[in-house]
């Protein structure tokens, strides 16, 4: 009986190996994908205190940067296709674990939080250094084929951290990606569509690469209930500055060349001319308005015409 069971187990084992290897021989091209994710205040909820020119953040929830969730989704689609492992990393305080859990709920395999007080005060240069150091550590531990980022974070809107990481790690930089067309069978190239102002560019690039994605790429999935519940108890791995071998002169405030001099609230928009058909100057004002519109319409038209 026992022998029979063992044989059965063995058989199962063999079958599953066969499936694995079949899967692999065709598709093992992307093994490890790293997604960079930032926890941001929900800027659509932020209000300004006009008296002190500061933001009212009370009650404003922190969320995972929406574009980064598009990147997580793209990683998960590749994971399903190629059996890759998806690691999500974020630089932030312990509260940022909440945003990482969201990626876990969607199906990411592991999450790492880069947390150290000395990271505070970082601009995009220091941030890209910190994230790049963590990715280097993951590379050393077994390679990274693809790094995915959202096109920008909604609190800073800089779109600079992605190119920063690519440059530091010598990854092929592909920004504003709206579609991943294909990954070559040899695992050496990736073909993507980039969404530019006036059209779509199709580019083939070497792997490993860093992609920043626009929201058109994939809509983030709605996690299944078991995954969601599991993620609520997930504890991300935490790495401090020392654990990513960070050079103290390149992180946080010290590693940041830019300096916020002042912060102020934008001037309030004010009402302008009111045109009342009954008024004396209506005709004159109306034709002035039409001229303004005409000018802009003409400028916009000329942009579309390729000379």
């Amino acid at each position: 009986m026992i022998f029979f069971l063992m044989a059965l187990l063995l058989h199962i084992d063999i079958v599953s190996t066969a499936i694995d290897s079949q899967y692999c021989s065709e598709k093992v091209t992307i093994v490890h994908i790293v997604v960079c994710l930032k926890q941001v205040p929900d800027t659509t909820e932020v209000k300004i205190d006009r008296k002190t020119n500061t933001l009212i953040r009370e009650g404003v929830p922190s969320i995972a940067n929406p574009f980064d969730l598009n990147a997580v989704e793209a990683a998960l689609v590749l994971k399903e296709k190629y059996g890759a492992t998806v690691t999500v990393i974020s630089m932030g305080p312990p509260q940022a674990k909440e945003a990482l859990r969201r990626a876990i709920a969607m199906g990411a395999d592991q999450a790492i939080l880069l947390s150290d007080r000395s990271f505070a005060g970082a601009d995009t240069l220091a941030t890209s250094y910190t994230l790049a150091q963590a990715i280097l550590k993951l590379q050393d531990a077994g390679g990274v084929d693809l790094v995915l980022c959202g096109k920008q974070a909604i609190d800073g809107d800089t779109a600079q951290v992605g190119p920063g990481i690519a440059t530091r790690l010598n990854l092929t930089q592909l920004t504003y990606v709206s579609k991943i067309e294909s990954v070559d069978a040899d695992g050496k190239h990736i073909t993507v569509e980039r969404k530019l102002e006036n059209g779509v560019e199709i580019v083939r690039g070497n792997l490993p690469a860093l992609l920043t994605v626009v929201k058109e790429i994939y809509k983030p999935r709605y996690a299944s209930l078991p995954c969601l519940i599991e993620s609520l108890a997930y504890e991300p791995v935490v790495w401090n500055a020392k654990q990513i071998s960070a050079d103290s002169s390149q992180i946080g405030l010290e590693g940041s060349p830019t300096w916020v001099e002042t912060i102020f609230s934008p001037p309030l928009r004010e009402g302008g001319v009111i045109l009342n058909p009954g008024d004396e100057n209506y005709d004159k004002e109306f034709s002035g308005l039409i001229d303004t519109v005409k000018k802009i319409v003409a400028e916009e038209r000329s942009k579309l015409v390729c000379s």
Binding site: Y222, A223, S224, L225, P226, L228
Partner: peptide, 9 residues
Amino acid sequence: KTGRENGEI
């Protein structure tokens, strides 16, 4: 039942 996949609890 919830609106999520495998959403019975």
